[in-house]
Design a protein around this nucleic acid. Structure first.
Lengths: 123, 123
DNA sequence: TGCATTGTTCGGCAACTTTAGTACAGTCGA
DNA sequence: TCGACTGTACTAAAGTTGCCGAACAATGCA
């Protein structure tokens, strides 16, 4: 069931397209913030989504080399492959995570402006 | 015909999914290496592909905020939005471009090994 | 003005992605 | 051993992407 690529089998295109999805980027942010998670706990933090849907996303993240996924008891623990990603692509993950935070802050600020400052240009 | 996002409308997910494609990543590497290009010159460097296919890729790169595309005479000049990307996501573009170079070098080395060193594990 | 050049738009097609429902397999606790 | 729990496998529908040919628009040169 596994299929994790070795460190030197990771390709940047796969990493980028894996992270170029809102759901999967959110997963990676959760994993970066916390320690160990099982599938269900991440699923809870993201709000909705069916288990089978997430199984699909786990596979994309796993096969692109972004996460480790290993069974432990009846759970399947998830963790970021930070060491491998940092080794292959120094600064990439940090830049992406910082960028995601930045986007979120910017979005939040924009919403405040829309309420307090009379939004002028949006529909 | 344009539709370029403002700097603060750029979202990291769009950038990542734009660059998570071999063709578009190659385009960005070409733009990073050289100065100004028109559509045809990049198309030539990538080998094949129909013009209309590339028009599609230009749009993805343009609308995600990765490139500028502006008409000049009968050509359409392309350039990387390096300043905007660096401002929004410091280190991201450098990490990606370095990673792409690294992947390519690794791939090249692997091919040499396969010829000289008797490849053991591949199909 | 006529023609070649440059790239866009449009329509269609195949392949892939995302999502979810249902059924199932492994593990832990009672 | 039985049942609850965790997650995968399989299937399928809906949407998206990538690719291309043909027609079109804009420009510049002769």
């Amino acid at each position: 069931m596994s299929r994790h690529p070795d460190r030197d089998q990771i390709r940047i295109e796969s990493v980028l397209s894996a992270l170029g999805s809102p759901v999967r980027l959110a997963v990676v942010r959760v994993l970066d913030a916390g320690g160990e998670h099982n599938c269900g706990s991440v699923l809870g933090l993201l709000g909705i989504t069916a288990k089978s849907t997430m199984t699909h996303h786990w596979r994309v993240l796993r096969e692109s080399g972004v996460i480790w996924q290993h069974p432990s008891g009846r759970e399947n623990l998830l963790s970021l492959r930070r060491d491998d990603l940092d080794a292959r692509y120094p600064g990439l993950l940090d830049a992406i995570l910082a960028g995601a935070d930045d986007d979120e802050a910017l979005e939040k600020a924009r919403r405040l402006m829309a309420v307090g400052g009379r939004d002028r240009s949006e529909t």
